[in-house]
């Protein structure tokens, strides 16, 4: 029973490509929010959702301290039984746009990170029609078999610097806002 609840729906990766302004966006999903909560904080924990709206002053203070732009005033956070935090946030880089889950403990230290959705943009359309054809009609429920449906891409190494910046911003958000709650 415990096991069932741990990763309720078998973790299947869903992948898809769509066009936006003449560019191809390649998106992959990894763990769900519930799965990431359990991976980062343990299956026994409880998560209380909390809606936090940053004030303009708070946004300014966080941006100044972290040297990272604060794009959104609304935070998607959960509080754990041990007064830790689980935050789902978006990191927007030059080439990538990702949904990130971050666990911050009661002392304001990063306990873990997990990428939930990864999107990468290509300069122009993917030429191989066969490659694109695989995405038509693929739902998240489809039993995606390893590498049969999941394409692997090898190319120049993309730096994860934007994640580092995003985590830094969230640590300052903890310092300025979350720890006082």
């Amino acid at each position: 029973m415990h096991r069932r609840s741990f990763l309720g729906n078998a973790a299947v990766a869903a992948a898809g490509a769509f066009c936006l302004n003449g560019q191809v966006v390649w998106a992959e999903t990894f763990l769900t929010v519930e799965q990431a909560q359990k991976v980062l904080w343990g299956s026994a924990n409880t998560f209380t959702p909390s809606h936090i709206q940053l004030t303009k002053d708070e946004m300014k203070a966080i941006a100044k301290a972290s040297k990272v732009r604060v794009r959104r005033s609304r935070l998607q956070v959960w509080r754990t039984a041990e007064k830790g935090w689980f935050i789902v946030d978006q990191v927007i880089g030059k080439h990538e746009n990702i949904d990130l889950a971050v666990a911050i403990d009661v002392n304001g230290k990063v306990k873990g990170l997990e990428v939930l959705t990864y999107r990468e943009t290509y300069g122009h359309e993917i030429r191989n029609d066969q490659w694109r054809a695989q995405f038509h009609g693929k739902g998240t429920e489809a039993d995606l078999r390893l590498n049969k449906e999941i394409r692997n891409i090898s190319g120049a190494t993309l730096s994860c610097r934007h994640v580092t910046d995003g985590v830094n911003r969230l640590l300052h958000t903890w310092h300025h806002v979350l720890r006082h709650l």
Binding site: R3, F6, L7, A10, F30, I150, T157
Partner: peptide
């Protein structure tokens, strides 16, 4: 066959892992 896909920032980049095995989710 169970599958699991995870992605974490490591080695200065994004590290993606896909696993499949006849086993349980845990």
């Amino acid at each position: 066959m169970k599958t699991l896909s995870r992605c974490k920032p490591a080695l200065g980049t994004y590290v993606k892992l896909h696993l499949a095995q006849e086993t349980d989710d845990d």
